[in-house]
Simulated scan of single mutants.
Amino acid sequence: MRILTSSLRLSFGCWNYDRTRALMDRTVVPDGIDLVYLNMPVEETFFRMLRHKEFDIAEMSLSSYVMSHFTEAQPFVAIPVFPSRYFRHSSIYVNSGAGIRQPSDLAGKRVGSPEYQMTAPVWIRGILSDEYGVRVDDVTHYTGGEEQPNRPEKLPLDLPPYIRVKRIGPQQTLSTMIREGDIDALFTARKPSSYDGCHVKRLFEDFVQVERDYFRKTEIFPIMHTIVIRREIYEAHRWIAQSLYKAFAEAQARIYRDLEETAALKVMLPWLNAHVEEARRIMGDDYWSYGFKQNRQTLDTFLRYSYEQGLSKRRLEPEDIFVPETMENFVI
């Protein structure tokens, strides 16, 4: 597709997802925008955007974005596009000698997370509280690098005193600590390298069924990341919010069509069609939905968790965190 020479050139930090790939290879071009797609793993994108605001647009941890509303600058706005969603029951790991057989056994234990503010542990802590009665202050939280030492919180924490968060040592990693029994459990996004199914196990070994049951009960498919725009860029060019949203939606629609193709598999997964049919049967046709209205309940649940866990200073509403241009659409 031809890019007009008058297009606004904007940088975009994001990982290489199937649902955003058309933006990277420029088969989808946002109206009026020359998008420079910088393909990076999420940890790098988040760090560079939160610490240095290096990009005009970026994929962003939902939790860190929410926390940024309580900084003086409030440097970002967001559109309701969600490049990462993930059921996180599978992301609770336990040391097999810690005596943790069911969620209630986590009470009184030492629980690691790479960052307390990380979106995946926020969801895990909230689900454990809502579904199993394990509150955020029932455990002691340990934070630091999962595979490399000295990972910091991307934004400073200011937690209530009843929430106990301790930094691990400068030479320690959470992956090693859970294997050695220096922590009892790990809430994280990436599977630790020490996971072997023996000394380090998942709390929910049958996590797929547990996650299906959770969705049937709650209708929540947890949102991990959203798309943010630097506030000064948005305020100077408010039209870009809709241009970007439309382009992300079109890039995603192409993948929906690819995943339903039966002449040949476009993804190297032997039973892809069965997975797609099952997802549609349980979650509906738009099982990875973008947009505000259809995700309001999920967003409201996350915002409650952020407040209950001491990350948000007040209880935000979903309407507080997205630009108004993406709240509604025109009708002919």
Rank of each mutant, 00 (worst) to 15 (best):
I3D: 08
R254A: 14
N329T: 11
I100Q: 03
E59I: 01
E153M: 02
D31A: 12
M224W: 05
E72I: 03
W288T: 03
P80H: 01
M60S: 14
S64M: 07
L10D: 00
N95Y: 01
A120N: 08
R48Y: 07
A189M: 09
V134E: 03
A189I: 05
E308V: 08
S175Y: 02
S312L: 06
D196P: 15
G32L: 01
P114C: 05
H52N: 09
G108R: 02
F207N: 12
E319V: 13
H69E: 09
E317D: 15
Q74M: 12
D56C: 03
K53T: 09
L155E: 02
E59A: 01
Y234C: 12
S96A: 15
R179W: 02
F215D: 13
S6Y: 02
Q172P: 06
I255T: 14
G13Q: 07
F302H: 11
T140H: 08
R125Y: 02
C14R: 02
R257N: 14
K217D: 07
T27I: 01
Q74S: 12
I332E: 10
R281L: 10
P149H: 07
D158H: 01
I321W: 04
S312F: 00
E232T: 14
R164V: 14
R164S: 12
K246T: 12
D34C: 04
F47D: 11
L303F: 01
G291A: 00
L106Q: 07
T326S: 10
G112S: 05
D158K: 00
F330L: 12
V331K: 08
R51P: 06
I57H: 00
P121W: 04
V81C: 09
E277A: 09
R257A: 15
R19E: 14
R281F: 01
